[in-house]
Structure formats: structure tokens, C-alpha cells
Design a protein around this nucleic acid. Sequence first.
DNA 1: GTTTAGACAGAAAATATTTCTAAAATAGCT
DNA 2: AGCTATTTTAGAAATATTTTCTGTCTAAAC
Lengths: 154, 154
Amino acid sequence: MIPLDSTDKALLSYLQHNSKQTNKELSNKLNLSVTAVYERIKKLEREGVIQKYIALVEPEKVDLELLVFCQIKLTQHSREYLTKFESEVTQLTEVLECFHVSGEYDYLLKVLVKDMEHFRMFMVSKLTTLQHIGSTQSSFSINKVKNTTVLTLS
Amino acid sequence: MIPLDSTDKALLSYLQHNSKQTNKELSNKLNLSVTAVYERIKKLEREGVIQKYIALVEPEKVDLELLVFCQIKLTQHSREYLTKFESEVTQLTEVLECFHVSGEYDYLLKVLVKDMEHFRMFMVSKLTTLQHIGSTQSSFSINKVKNTTVLTLS
DNA sequence: GTTTAGACAGAAAATATTTCTAAAATAGCT
DNA sequence: AGCTATTTTAGAAATATTTTCTGTCTAAAC
């Protein structure tokens, strides 16, 4: 496990909220020199603590308004069936997340589409055509209460 | 709705995967001048299509190994109870996501913690102490099949 | 046919990143 | 504690990038 001091944690918090801050701005907030900030960031990148830097796109602005959580049961649970299903579901661009989970259902998917009609098409022509699918259960997001990518480091 | 041409969509795709590319690199990929790339990005930022730029932290590298999905029922569904619950759950740093959803349960939470012992403490001393909580049902992530922030624009 | 607005390219200016050198702080060892 | 090796840090200099500016081109409107 990579040891992080409180400066690293503060730095990661800043970068998780806004990665476009300059090293000078960060150096002020952290009371460090620009080079010290630079070296710390490079180290965190090298170690893989910082996975990558990305732009977040606002779903509503690109006409993706309907978020659905789909729970899925497979018909069988052989290794072959699982890997087949997983590789197929990964290909679906509407599926943002897919986790193999414990409990009554095997998988939990987060699906983002334009509207109900697109979700219907997604279900009919994509999800339910996957091999070895048993039953599915969909839950629609009524309201986004919290949605963050920020991991709190303690 | 903001009209996006195919160049905008390609640009957004690049930035959603890696926002640290220089405008020169992007200009090569898009066959544009640096200025054209610059202006397009500024427009997308102005319009709010690009929400923000962030660093993604690898959970395993910071010792957050257990991902749990919690479904929650409230005891009542008055406006007062909902907003109270929502403001309290938003405060919990272990809760990365919380959606008000349709179906048997009212809320779906994505919770990230170090291990089972930390999850137990989260349940006992945080989640189940929230006001108006009825029943909860937890599902543990066995395997991360897919987990992306990239929205596919068509 | 002229005008106007938007997108684009290239150059210049302003900023930021990255490298380099050396000093300070830290950790490990005797 | 005292010494040494290693890491972290700061400041300056070198690179690279972003941002601004100017002018051209194109397409749509009049």
C-alpha cells in the first residue's frame, strides 16, 4: 500500500475536484513550491494512485436524460456463461457500469439513454438478446441525490 | 439542446478519455488548427457540455476495496422525510452515489469503504442512524465488469 | 451582389510545465 | 547523538502550452 501524507491527500482532493488548476495555484493552497507540487503529482501518477485525467460531460446537455439500474439473473452460472455475458455487456455503450454482485440477482447495471423509447429499444434489441440472460428487473432514477467521483482519503 | 457536429463529438470523446492531451495533439487527431481546437473546447465549456475536469483516483491504491450497493426504504414518504434523508446521506463521504429510484425500494446507494469491518461500522453508526430509515438491503460487488464515465454521443 | 456572423489558421504574447542544480529535511544505521 | 544516504524542496532557466490577436474564408441572410 502506498503511504500518503496529509499533503498528498489534500492534493488529491483538489485534483479530484478540479484537475485544471495550475501547479502555482496548488502550491499556494498547499504552501509548497511549484516544483514540490509537480514532483508529488508525478509520483502519484507513477504509482497509479491517479489513474487518469478526464473531462466530465453533462448528460442532460447531450440529451441523455434517463438513467436506469438493471438487475440481471443469468440462466446458468458456469464460468463460460459469465465471461460471455460480461464481454458482451461491456460492448454496450449505454451501459456505463456493470458489477457482478451478491444477492438475488447476478449483475447490477447502470444504463444511460435518451428517453424511455430508447430504453425500450435498448432492452429489446440489445440487453435481452444477450446470451444466457434469465430475468431482469429495472429501476428508474427519479432524482439524482448525489453523484461524485471523489474518494475521501482518511 | 446544443447542436454538436461530428468534430465536437470526436473532441468530447478524446477529452472524456484523457483531458491532459495538448491542443496540438488534439489538432492532429482532428485535422484542425490549435486555435480551432481551443475555440471548440472553450465553447463546450461555456455551454456546460463539459462540466469539469477531474483526476480519477484508483480505489484499490488508496485502500478502498469494498463496494456495496444499498437499497433503502423510508418509513414514510412525506416531502419532509425525503429531503431530510437526502441531505443527511449527501454528507456521508462513503456514499459516492445516491439515486431516488422507482420500484420496491426508494433509494439506491453506491458505498465505497475499506473492508467489511468498515462497512459494518458505516451501517451501524451512520446509515441506520439516519432518520426515517425503514429497511435496507445490501449487495456486495464481487467483480467490476465495467465502470466508465464516458458518455457515447451519437 | 453585398453584408454579417461564425469558424479557422498562423503568428505573437502570456502562462504554465518541466528540467536542472543545490539546499534542506528525513530516515536509517552505528 | 552523530553520520550517511535518500528524499523532498526551492528557485532559476529552459521548454512547451495556452491564449490572444489579426486577418481570411465560407455560408447564410438580406
